[in-house]
Design a protein around this nucleic acid. Sequence first.
DNA 1: GTAACTATACAGAACATTCTGTATAGCTAT
DNA 2: ATAGCTATACAGAATGTTCTGTATAGTTAC
Lengths: 191, 191
Amino acid sequence: MGRPPLAKDKILAAARQIVEQHGAGCLTFDELARVSGITRGGITYHFPTKEDLLRGLLESDFAQWEESETALTPPDCDPETARLLGFIRAYTSQDESHRRFLSGMLSAATLDPSLMDPCRQELQERLGRKQWTERDLRMHILHLAAEGLMWQELFQMFALPAPARARLITLIERLAREWGEEQPGRLAKEA
Amino acid sequence: MGRPPLAKDKILAAARQIVEQHGAGCLTFDELARVSGITRGGITYHFPTKEDLLRGLLESDFAQWEESETALTPPDCDPETARLLGFIRAYTSQDESHRRFLSGMLSAATLDPSLMDPCRQELQERLGRKQWTERDLRMHILHLAAEGLMWQELFQMFALPAPARARLITLIERLAREWGEEQPGRLAKEA
DNA sequence: GTAACTATACAGAACATTCTGTATAGCTAT
DNA sequence: ATAGCTATACAGAATGTTCTGTATAGTTAC
């Protein structure tokens, strides 16, 4: 909490780099030591076991993720639409923090799927409360589209030229605003 | 070509099962032998190396994938819309063949990303020819939404109740038809 | 038609490597 | 003197790969 150690961040950064570049199968302690420049002893000091490492990856990424998500939320529309726009911007943002979250999730999922349980729980709570009106469904389509784009890019299956990509995101956001205002409904009165 | 061997199919089926249930990290020859009922010698006969195994997974899945994709294409609308609807149905279909494709891709990507190069190339060719009109972008949003849903379900991050899921897919298809007919443009005259 | 041979499809064990986890001793700045 | 880290070493297990053996079906020669 007080002085953040430097090595820990280097280790996590190197782990993300390895996963992104060579796949989660190459995420070993030896390779991690080589890439991060921290010795195996130092790595073990911070992450005694590999599960600790993966958990650390997930936690730091998830924190960064939620932080940026709320930071990107524009306040000029109703809360639910704003939240969706925050999602979309977070998913489609070019900066790497969101990819990092996904790569962490990916490595965790492939090496030990149970590590994702907290994420599952969180998602369950978020989506479980919805009524799934037509408006909810429409908004969810846009949410899924942004997420699908992120997956494609994470796997480097992304083939859209940059201008088209920018227009695509703009279009998604425009639709979010249009559809969000379509039915103000009971969302405006109760916070 | 003549008589398809039985063991090979068992091995591939077991591999998919392992990846789906326990993650690609658990896809080892020992586990594969245990689940498939084929001994390690037999496995090695058909797939001398692990790369061969993953390549086999990808190839068989990709074949199955394209087959079902075109099979699910409804012929009652313009070709491009029909193709999108085929995509969507393939992505969101409850039957397991598409999950299999994804699980194969996933294991390939996590263990050796370069195995996905053929898929990348195919996608590049498909998307590279588009002009990315507003209509194209809208259709692509629906494509991505279906794909995002598939990813969520593959990672078992899916939280929508079944009725809402069905309505979501119906809505996506409805939008595909609406947006597909919005601008017949130059698509109708040239095949 | 049967003996010799080839090719295919697997079984079963052995091998060498890699990886995780753990341990220990030392350095350095505060 | 303690936290943070370097440096090295090693045990135990897991894993990819290789090797040898076995069973069966098909082909060819005689």
